[in-house]
Design a protein around this nucleic acid. Structure first.
Length: 563
RNA sequence: GGGCCGAUAGCUCAGUCCGGCAGAGCGACGGCCUCUUAAGCCGUCGGUCAAGGGUUCAAAUCCCUUUCGGCCCGCCA
């Protein structure tokens, strides 16, 4: 359970509640999710409050999709803090047609594979452009359809970050007839619908019909409606070509009839129709929707469907390593991959930040994100000073929503980069010894705390390996190929003799200097010799305590260049 | 072409709505710990608030213009 929600007088006018750029920016709240909750409550929604997100299951889910999941989650939690019941719904827009061949796919284990890979039935996909995702075979053959496959990955992604969501399949909504009343209504007032949408889309002309039938012959959503018979609940259509980007998906020319369930609404109408059907009170969306779909959707909801639109919120897109996230170009990172590098709470923390800012998710500098989270957590436990009152409130409100559960005791965290260094060895006891020697583990830490703190090593090690950065040390198991001069060799022998007499890291550290001086060699060169022997690099961790932590017999053999 | 969002220290970001000393963490640098090299402590440096102009006693904040990054204006979602 989270802390008290600060009581404030909220005074939002209609404009502020339905301006997607304004929602969530109140200066009365430190955490944007609280400001969003204020706006939602101003609309006086009934319980349960419905929060919706949604994406097309078009390909490999990537971290961008977590805007839909986690932004919504924080708002849901902010409302629950105020005693409200909330449903977090997520639509998989699986009735959408596949418009182009994805370059990469992922199997259910999140292994990324190229479209042309042998494991992929590429023909099953290539021959089905223009069909709904749920009518295309799963190219891996493991799920009911292409749509089901990637919906399963989305479900798994939400599960990985432990956000409970109610999944709703759009295709199933159509099949169950949920869209039929809205479809019928829109077709009966096609002129009105056309007039309204033409204010937002220049291309809407007199021929426009707010329904896209699915061809009974070829299965594609390409039909051009030629007549409507609402009494029969049918439309007549001709299967025509479909423009998709710079390509054309060919229709089969079939002339036939379709029921109001055999097809779909164009997106501009489908979105507000979802609001109506699901009773949506709040929906965040990417900036791509902000200038197009939202204004028309709001208008359609109010003036055509006669329903209140949800409270909207725009989030900025972020980049990955400075480049646009793009499934087609392959610049994606999956949640599964991210969670190999980060603890879930750190990943969730990333989404606590202001949604209105363009942000880069940089794998190279992930350590900074982790450090930021660690400080955030210390502030929560009173172990670090908040920079101002705003941050104090932000921490108080957001931290409990980031972690699984707030622990009684402050979790022990070892710095991420140090954790990466510990990854030099697979010896768990050695990791703990080194961490203790460096004071990263309190004397009285419980075994659970130690275990929890060291769990980070796996992720930090994976990060160091992946980026091959300065923390990518590896304990040299065999004697590296070395060739020292006489003085250095003698100094190393001295050092070995000294190590034999003590296991005090600080004393060893001092002897390294002394031995170098005695043999008249540069201290820095002597350190380098040590790093070369143990890590096969020129620099590394503080050598004395490092050697003290290692197995003594191993250290002696190595210093004497014997093994 | 029209509209919209963003840009603040080397990095990650607060602060902008409602004008009032330019901020935090990390990094860097210096010092301390018998000690250049993952830790710790102390300290220092670090800024054309993207650029220019305007309003104001006072502008990162408001107004105008421009640059850069991105989005929308598709019978796409």
């Amino acid at each position: 359970m989270t802390g008290e929600v600060p009581e404030i007088d909220v005074d939002l006018d209609e404009d502020a509640i339905y301006d997607p750029y304004a929602v969530g920016t109140s200066d009365q709240r430190a955490f944007w999710a609280d400001a969003v909750a204020d706006a939602i409550l101003e609309t006086e929604p009934d319980d349960p409050i419905v929060i919706k997100g949604g994406v097309s299951p078009s390909g490999v889910p990537h971290i961008g999709h977590f805007n839909e999941i986690l932004r919504s989650y924080f708002v849901a939690e902010a409302l629950r803090d105020r005693g409200r019941e909330v449903r977090q719904v997520f639509t998989t827009d699986d009735k959408d047609p596949l418009r182009k061949i994805p370059r990469t796919l992922a199997d259910l284990e999140w292994t990324i594979v190229d479209f042309g890979d042998d494991a992929v039935d590429s023909a099953a996909v290539g021959q089905n452009l223009g069909k709904p995702y749920t009518d295309i075979p799963d190219p891996f053959g493991c799920c009911d359809s292409y749509g089901a496959h990637f919906t399963n990955l989305l479900l798994d992604a939400a599960d990985l970050v432990d956000v409970p969501i109610e999944f709703v399949s759009n295709t199933e909504l159509y099949e169950a007839g949920e869209f039929e009343p809205v479809t019928r209504d829109l077709l009966s007032r096609a002129d009105e619908a056309r007039d309204l949408l033409s204010e937002y889309q220049d291309s809407v002309d007199d021929e426009y019909t707010p329904f896209t039938p699915q061809c009974t012959e070829c299965g594609k959503l390409t039909g051009e409606v030629t007549s409507v018979d609402l009494d029969a609940g049918e439309v007549e259509y001709t299967c025509t070509d479909l423009e998709a980007g710079d390509r054309t998906i060919q229709g089969c020319g079939h002339e036939g009839t379709a029921t109001l369930r055999e097809g779909k609404l164009p997106w501009r109408f489908e979105w507000p129709a979802q609001w109506d059907i699901l009773g949506v009170d709040f929906e965040p969306f990417g900036k791509d929707h902000a200038e197009g779909s939202w204004p028309s959707g709001e208008d359609i909801a109010r003036n055509l469907l006669d329903v209140a639109p949800p409270v909207p919120m725009v989030y900025e897109w972020f980049t990955l390593n400075g480049e646009a996230l793009s499934s087609s170009s392959g610049n994606v990172v999956t949640v599964a991959e991210v969670l190999e590098l980060l603890e879930p709470e750190v990943f969730r923390y990333f989404f606590v930040k202001n949604p209105r800012k363009q942000r880069d998710f940089s794998v190279e500098t992930l350590d900074q994100l982790v450090d930021e989270f660690d400080r955030f957590e210390r502030v929560y436990f009173g172990d670090a000073e908040p920079r101002d009152e705003t941050e104090a409130e932000l921490v108080e409100r957001a931290y409990p929503k980031i972690v699984d559960s707030v622990s009684q005791q402050q979790p022990v965290r070892i710095p991420y980069t140090f954790a990466a260094v510990l990854g030099m060895t697979d010896d768990l006891e050695l990791r703990e010894t080194m961490a203790r020697r460096e004071g990263h583990l309190p004397e009285d830490a419980t075994p659970e705390q130690v275990h929890g703190a060291l769990a980070r090593v796996e992720q930090a090690r994976a990060w160091a390996e992946r980026t091959d950065n300065e923390y990518n040390y590896r304990l040299a198991e065999d004697l590296p190929d070395v060739d020292f001069d006489e003085a250095t060799a003698a100094a190393l022998d001295d050092l070995a003799d000294f190590v034999e007499t003590t296991d005090d890291g600080e004393e060893i550290q001092g002897e390294i200097y002394e031995a170098a001086k005695r043999h008249e060699i540069e201290v820095s060169d002597f350190f380098s010799a040590g790093y070369r022997l143990f890590l096969d690099t020129d620099q590394g961790p503080r050598l004395g305590p490092f050697l003290a932590a290692l197995d003594e017999a191993f250290v002696l053999d190595r210093l004497r260049r014997e093994a």
